[in-house]
Design a protein around this nucleic acid. Sequence first.
DNA 1: TCATTGCGTTGACGCTTATCAATGCGCTTT
DNA 2: AAAGCGCATTGATAAGCGTCAACGCAATGA
Lengths: 192, 192
Amino acid sequence: MYELFFKKMAEKITLTSAQQDIIKQYLIPKKIRKNQYLLQEGDVAKHAAFVEKGALRAYSVDDRGTEHIIQFAFEGWTISDLYSFLTGEAATYNVDALEDSELVLISKAAQDEILKQIPEYEVYTRLQITGAYLAMQKRLTSILSLSLEERYINLTKLYPNLIQRVPQRMIASYMGLTPETLSRVRRKIKDK
Amino acid sequence: MYELFFKKMAEKITLTSAQQDIIKQYLIPKKIRKNQYLLQEGDVAKHAAFVEKGALRAYSVDDRGTEHIIQFAFEGWTISDLYSFLTGEAATYNVDALEDSELVLISKAAQDEILKQIPEYEVYTRLQITGAYLAMQKRLTSILSLSLEERYINLTKLYPNLIQRVPQRMIASYMGLTPETLSRVRRKIKDK
DNA sequence: TCATTGCGTTGACGCTTATCAATGCGCTTT
DNA sequence: AAAGCGCATTGATAAGCGTCAACGCAATGA
């Protein structure tokens, strides 16, 4: 249990097995079925979720009922409404499972406790959020400066997983497009 | 000197004056004139820059010569090509001054040294990047789910500074629009 | 087996935004 | 004071994307 979780950590910091045992005390394993909610808008995000297996998405719903996908999370990724998780305020978006998934939950209290006891973990969280920041900046700059075709091609290269495991209409939502437009973009690329 | 820099830190962590003195040894003050470059695409980002006074922007230039503004930085903000700063690879964008400015530079080596000597600084950098992440996520979701008018109004509320101190065409670039379109959006809002 | 449902695709149309061009204004420079 | 320049604005037109509608297909269930 927690193999991938510690494997990911080992890529950035070194922990003794005693330290790992301390951390394990605070982790909560959880299985979640496809289409099941992990978090709903209005709830308070009590946990961050590390994905051991499966796939999740975070999304909001606007006035017109349109879904906007904020983030996907596959194996090795962490997902939560970070703002709600940190502040304890109501979540601004929903998180649900795209496939049957296995998660590792970390509560805010657990995270704080681990941060206190294990200085290395502070480094890990800093590096992790830095990576997430850079990835999101890349996503944002690609929206601002690339054509739809370029954006889609980049996405397929960056996350081959995404294309195979996620329905097109969700990819469209992630890109800020209608499914029809994405379908036409794909056609254009194919025709070349 | 460095007043704002330490004031901002004091909002998140507590440092002894001895610790502050250690940090000061690694800081480099720098004045920069309006329109002057701090960093150009292709350079390696050697420093992160904290803005004590003035205003800077980070931007890229695409194939057609169009500028895309990635980030503004006013007093109290930090700016750099984070990716280049961390990896030592060539910068992917430019940073220049919108006004005569006073900066506090921190080199990568200095940062690493401070992180080693002062554990509190690790906490500070983590909280800082987390805040930047959340702000960028907000910017991204507003692009995906709001109308142009809503986005512009939000921007004026969030950063009143921006509207007063930055030319419209740069705000348009920041929003991913042409100056003409932003002008029309502003007109529509005014007419209501 | 047949009906149902959800998804991706395609077509027609309209709205939004980009592009191109022109004007006026304020600021700087000489 | 005059000329030159960058910037914001406005108008006309074109391109891109959203919306609405219809269809085919595969998966699901009666």
